[in-house]
């Protein structure tokens, strides 16, 4: 974990309203693992005050990228960054997908992502053992909001039916799994809580291991503020911290 002042390399819109910001940091690039995140101070001012957490979208050489849409003051400032501008980044943070992706016991990695929940997966796929089968299910509101970077065969669901399956991505997954058999699948997921909740119900019914990266408002990202609790199921403690114990949890271990 480091705090670093990283120069911005580029900001580009890679799907409608979805931006990719690339910055340069050797230390971060060298140590980041899939599913970890960075906590970014978007400017030197006291407004906005807190850092903003972002999944690590991709790492290539010394370049690290994050993905966001413009929803508040922090992301409005980020989207205006120019090459050479400096952002203050703490990371890499949290427990990502590494443990679940590197432990044996599965042959097919099934990615289920909703909206900006695709963020951790290009990096994930770049690090996944080449002998795994990969199956990706991506849900978006509409066709032009689908981020395809880093994915191969994609099964798409759109809310408005403008591409692929019309409806939500979990229903698409369920339909696909009723028609196909996969040897030892393991699901890796990220997306809106409502989606994860439905996914967790589906995977428990089908007895498929499922890991999800959770989103939660947080301040410090390192466990100091205790601001990001998720309630555990049968855990030793009532709450785990999304920032430090997560953001990736086995979906059966937490109340979504």
């Amino acid at each position: 974990m480091v705090q670093t002042h990283a120069p911005v390399h580029s900001v580009e819109e890679i799907a409608s309203g979805i931006f990719r910001l690339v910055f340069r940091s050797h230390e971060l690039a060298a140590t980041a693992q899939p599913g970890q995140f960075v906590n970014v101070k978007v400017n030197d001012s006291l407004f906005p005050l807190l850092r903003r957490p972002f999944s690590i979208f991709f790492v290539e050489g010394d370049l690290v990228s994050i993905l966001f849409n413009v929803i508040g003051e922090g992301t409005r400032i980020l989207v205006g960054k120019k090459p050479g501008d400096v952002i203050d980044v703490i990371g890499p943070l949290g427990n990502g997908f590494s443990a679940a992706m590197n432990s044996g016991g599965y042959k097919t990695a099934v990615i289920v992502a909703g909206g900006l929940g695709i963020a951790p997966f290009p990096f994930f796929l770049s690090k996944l053992e080449k002998n795994k089968n990969v199956l990706s299910f991506i849900g978006a509101r509409t066709a032009n909001q689908i981020v395809r970077f880093g994915f191969n065969r994609i099964h798409i669901a759109t809310d408005d039916g403008s591409e692929g399956f019309s409806g939500n991505v979990v229903d698409l997954l369920a339909e696909h799994f009723s028609d196909h058999r996969y040897e030892l699948p393991r699901i890796f997921s990220c997306g809106p809580t409502r989606m994860l909740k439905r996914l967790s119900e589906f995977t428990q019914k089908k007895n498929i291991a499922c890991y999800a990266s959770l989103e939660c408002a947080m301040a410090c990202g390192i466990g100091l503020c205790q601001g990001c609790p998720v309630e555990t199921i049968n855990g030793k403690k009532k709450y785990a911290l999304v920032c430090r114990e997560g953001p990736v949890f086995e979906t059966g271990a937490v109340f979504l």
Binding site: A217, G227, C228, P229, K237
Partner: peptide, 13 residues
């Protein structure tokens, strides 16, 4: 244990 989420909210500065 502390309180349920959400536990924090940002306000101006």
């Amino acid at each position: 244990d502390g309180n349920p989420a959400p536990r924090i909210a940002e306000t101006p500065s």
